[in-house]
Design a protein around this nucleic acid. Structure first.
Length: 665
RNA sequence: GCUGCUGUAGCUCAGCCGGUAGAGCACUUCCUUGGUAAGGAAGAGGUCAUGGGUUCAAAUCCCGUCAGCAGCUCCA
């Protein structure tokens, strides 16, 4: 007999060799039916595997997020099996689960797979799923590995160099070699898997792309087939609905439809903001400026082009060169003005700033500072340029020039914790104004390429950890992901489609103040080196704007909407009344327009709706006589006839950002 | 940067087994003076991304370049 413990603390006795499925059956038939896999001593395992004595066991059902990963991994096997049936020459490589489903990288010695083949592959997948063949785990010795491969169909004639390489790796690490088979298919796999292929009925192929063996462009090129799998049809349908929704909300599409911005061949990766986009941009910046002022920030404005030498001092030249733009002079030939000399060397070559910190260090360094001034918070809506590889640019999300809502806190070491605490609460307050309350924090530590001593890094990393731990703030650790000058805390926010975006960042830096020879005079009359905290909340204003466009699907709340009201006269006879009403709306501080085109009311309403304008205000004979307006809300439909004062009272509070009190969590 | 796909009117797209371009919407003008998601008519608008090649003839076929899209890699 063995004895296992359940999550509720109770214990159960089972016969020796009993599996998690036996356990589930002993608890109840319902659970046995719902069971997908088991978590044994913290490790997810097949339901069919024997339980060790004394184990902590929980049965995973369709509801557990971990069960979904198991399902998708199994679906990858299902897909691989189907692909081999359609493409018998294909060789499998690796097939992991990713955030958004799973994929399998496949080597095709001849021929090509295309999305046109998806229906055939999916048809095979349905067939295999309906067979409901059990997944069986086989542990193999290394010598038997080839035999397994040869006997089954996972590999073409047992000669798959990719799988051989994987097997060799497993042998080297001294790990157990296991295979999983269902029906005639077998594949090298650590597992675990769902009990049988019947679980995999709700699986779809999603996309296809190229990839390389081991992600290395010099190695064999592979085809990566992506898929997604769920436990139910509803979840699968919902998933595709969300994808459709995301496509509809694409900020590049909405940016065009709402006339917010455009990207031009003449300036790849540099957005052109149209009047409405620029208004949105300024609304964000103005909001941020107000919030910064309230916290004692002092805004500066520093140059965009600075000497190359400065970037040597800061360390960017050594660590960030590939992402920087440099200026190069051109000169006319003195004798032949039609001849131009390119790339003329300058005595003092210049570079375009990719970050604002060196500029702020120069500002700080212009005079002596007392410890009484600290913490000194210097902010800037800093326009930075960063060279990006072609192919990574993406709408407003990834551009080559963007504005950071940047700031640097110069403070004493004792003040670090207070500043970080202030910032965490501050950032969350900002995000909540946009309804972005699902925020999680990540802590990134020293990367391979970095400046500063081990000691300094240890101090800086320790300080950030301490603030998070002492304030009970949950976070995820990302080793090696910090900035080259210091560790950082990043803020990830989830939008209305549950997608996560990295926005805010707080970076601790002991090195740059030292490199720039910055100092403050302490209470002891001696000079001390200040600590520098780099921080940005939106991150990139442009990118944040892109996120907001998708988050709101273009339906901006009143305070953000580039056009808040549009006055629609019923006919030409009421143009004057419409214009005067528009003037009054403008006087109230609203961003208002009046539609004086020769269109019918219905058409103008349609236009206002498509432009997602919060209020269309219809005026005709009745309104002119009564000195009223008739408002139609984008979100609530017709509001009826009312006086301007009444309308204003109704919308006034929504016209400014909803700011909640500053709080840590 | 790599792989695959794409580039035709302001926008969305058709034309693409070669014979110098077409629709809808938008735009302009006229008619219409209208009450909450499309009133009607006429008109204007394109060296088919760009450079080269094949051909009697290229939007159409081939190659290079640029840009975009989906991935890979990297980041705010």
């Amino acid at each position: 007999m063995i004895r296992v413990t359940l999550p509720d603390g109770s214990a159960r006795e089972l016969r020796a060799g009993a599996s998690a499925r036996d356990l589930a059956e002993s608890i109840g038939p319902g659970l046995a039916k719902a069971a997908v896999a088991a978590k044994v001593n913290g490790e997810v395992r097949d339901l069919a595997r024997a339980l060790p004595d004394g184990a902590q066991v929980s049965i995973l059902t369709k509801r557990d997020p971990e069960a979904l990963l198991v399902l998708r991994h199994s679906a990858a096997h299902l897909m691989a099996d189907a692909i081999l049936r359609v493409f018998p020459k294909a060789q499998l490589t690796i097939g992991p689960v990713v955030d958004d489903g799973f994929y399998y990288d496949i080597f095709l010695p001849e021929g090509k797979i295309s999305t046109d083949d998806f229906p055939r592959i999916e048809a095979e997948m349905v067939r295999i799923a309906e067979e409901g063949k059990p997944f069986q785990r086989c542990v193999s010795s290394y010598d038997e590995a080839d035999e397994h491969f040869a006997r089954y169909r996972a590999i073409d004639g047992g000669d798959n160099k990719f799988k051989r390489e994987l097997v060799a790796g497993i042998r080297e690490r001294g790990e157990e070699l296991s295979f999983y088979k269902h029906g005639d298919f077998i594949d090298l796999c650590r597992g675990p898997h769902v009990p049988d292929t019947g679980f995999l009925k709700f699986t779809k192929l999603t996309k296809l792309s190229g990839s390389y063996w081991r992600g290395d462009a010099t190695k064999d090129q592979l085809s990566r087939v992506y898929g997604i799998s769920f436990f139910s049809k509803k979840e699968l349908d919902d998933h595709f609905f969300m994808l459709e929704e995301a496509k509809k909300r694409d900020h590049r599409v909405l940016g065009k439809q709402l006339d917010l911005f455009h990207m031009d061949d003449e300036a790849p990766g540099f957005p052109f903001f149209h009047p409405k986009g620029a208004r949105l941009w300024h609304t964000l910046v103005d909001f941020m400026r107000g919030m910064l002022r309230r916290r004692g920030y002092q805004e500066v404005k520093t140059p965009i082009v600075l000497s190359e030498q400065l970037w040597h001092t800061s360390g960017h030249y050594a660590n960030y060169l590939e992402n920087m733009f440099f200026t190069k002079m051109k000169l006319r030939d003195e004798k032949d003005p039609s001849k131009i000399h390119e790339h003329v060397d300058e005595e003092r070559p210049m570079a375009v700033k990719p970050m604002n910190c060196p500029g702020h260090c120069l500002v700080y360094g212009t005079r002596i500072h007392s410890h009484r001034e600290l913490p000194l918070r210097i902010s800037e809506m800093g326009l930075v340029h960063r060279r990006e590889f072609s192919g990574v640019r993406h709408g407003l999300f990834r551009v080559q020039a963007f504005t950071q809502d940047d700031a640097h806190h110069f403070c004493s070491p004792e003040q670090i914790e207070g500043e970080i605490k202030l910032l965490i609460g501050f950032f969350k307050q900002i995000y909540s104004a946009f309804g972005l309350d699902d925020v999680h924090i990540e802590l990134s530590t020293r990367p391979a390429k970095s400046i500063g001593s081990d000691e300094v890094w240890a101090t800086a990393e320790g300080a950030l950890k301490r603030v998070l731990d002492q304030n009970g703030i949950a976070y995820k650790l990302n080793p090696g992901d910090g900035a080259f000058y210091g560790p950082k805390i990043d803020f990830h926010i989830r939008d209305s489609l549950k997608r996560s975006w990295q926005c805010g960042t707080i970076q601790l830096d002991f090195s740059m103040p030292l490199r720039f020879g910055l100092a403050y005079v302490g209470a002891d009359g001696e000079k001390h080196v200040p600590v520098m905290i780099h921080r940005a909340c939106f991150g990139s204003v442009e990118r944040f704007l892109g996120i907001l466009i998708e988050h709101f699907a273009g339906n901006f709340p009143l305070w953000l909407a580039p056009v808040q009201t549009v006055v629609v006269p019923v006919s030409e006879k009421f143009f004057d009344y419409a214009k005067s009403l528009n003037e009054q709306l403008l006087d109230l501080g609203l961003r208002s327009e009046v539609n004086l085109k020769d269109d019918r009311v219905g058409y103008k309403i349609r236009e206002a709706t498509l432009q997602k304008i919060p209020y269309a205000i219809v005026v005709g004979e009745k309104e002119q006589e009564n000195g009223t307006l008739n408002a139609r809300s984008r979100d609530e439909g017709e509001l009826g006839e009312m006086k301007l004062g009444e309308f204003w009272a109704k919308i006034e509070s929504a016209a400014s950002p909803p700011v909640r009190p500053n709080a840590l969590v």
